[in-house]
Design a protein around this nucleic acid. Structure first.
Lengths: 188, 188
DNA sequence: CCTACCGATCGGTAGG
DNA sequence: CCTACCGATCGGTAGG
């Protein structure tokens, strides 16, 4: 791990505990045994941490859903794998997920707009799966936007209570969530 | 509306847009045409706004579920009404809901612990309904904790996308969510 | 409800 | 990677 990576991962842990705004460059510096000024030799500024993390996770999620769409053609199967991929990404780095889900609001101007746009596109890909399921005759005629928001809410919330040392592992969570979601969507 | 209420409701609106930490007493003062120092004649300090709002909504939610438990005895009916009550509370004041769902982390020490405790108790009441549904033989044998967290996640997330001027009204959201959730829980 | 102000802390830069 | 420091802003108080 480079010094830069060490700084960033330490910062993310602090930001999960205290929040992005409440975590000062001096807090981060102290946690890696540096002076605050020295951090600027490794990162441009505080927002760079937020930007890199939010867009990094966005990229991971985008690649995940792309792969799912390339491999599977049935809506139930697509949904199952998309949920699995999303849960894997979220649980793999809870610190990063916190910034992605909660702190992106503090991105400034342009950057924030770009982020929201990519998030919306990702949401759209989930929505397409729900619509596909209806067209296939497998899913009920639900409001796709509403269903998608509800699904993504429960996926993102996993980051709030998932604990790597807990008894429920990412794979099991994905399975249970998929089952729950599909029960709500599929025709009986 | 008293001056105090005006200050608080103005503060809540700013805090939804900019976040709690990012909203300064000077911001609030400017929005109500005062000097920052004058705010302290109406409120004790900044945290009082957060405390009052978080615990106020907690109280509303607690009263809601209590009423549901007093009136209904069947788990499906209880769940339907509990969802309805929760959605009503969340959508009734989106600004307050934002503090309740996202900014309670910034409550300090004791207060924060108390808040978490009340939140956990509320969650427990939902969990009891899920367990009751299983005991009645109406619900599947799902993991109650998992199901409850998923349900509450989707309920709280409504505050993120609900718009009073939008076409979907609180009642309709509650109905669709209930339908979605019950499909996932009830035996076929 | 205001003026005047405090100590603390912030993100960040200069210069080495 | 550090010392030294900047201007800005913060929550809050004193005193009227």
């Amino acid at each position: 791990m480079t010094r830069r990576q060490e700084i960033i991962s330490t910062a993310l842990a602090l930001m999960l505990k205290k929040g992005y705004l409440n975590t000062s460059m001096r807090d981060i510096a102290a946690a890696v045994n540096m002076e605050a000024a020295s951090l600027y030799n490794h990162i441009k500024n505080k927002e760079e941490i937020l930007i890199e993390t939010c867009f990094g996770l966005a990229k991971t999620l985008e690649m995940g859903i792309k792969e799912v769409n390339d491999i599977y053609f049935n809506a139930s199967e697509k949904l199952r794998m998309a949920v699995s991929s999303h849960i894997a990404a979220i649980t793999q780095d809870l610190n990063a997920s916190h910034l992605f889900v909660h702190e992106w609001r503090h991105l400034s101007g342009d950057t924030r707009e770009q982020f929201v746009k990519r998030r919306d596109l990702y949401e759209q890909e989930f929505r397409d799966i729900v619509v596909l399921g209806f067209e296939e005759g497998e899913f009920k005629d639900v409001d796709p936007k509403f269903a998608t928001l509800t699904i993504l809410a429960s996926l993102n919330w996993v980051g709030e209570w998932y604990r790597p040392e807990g008894e429920m592992q990412a794979k099991e969570i994905a399975d249970k969530l998929t089952q729950f979601i599909l029960s709500g969507l599929q025709k009986n």
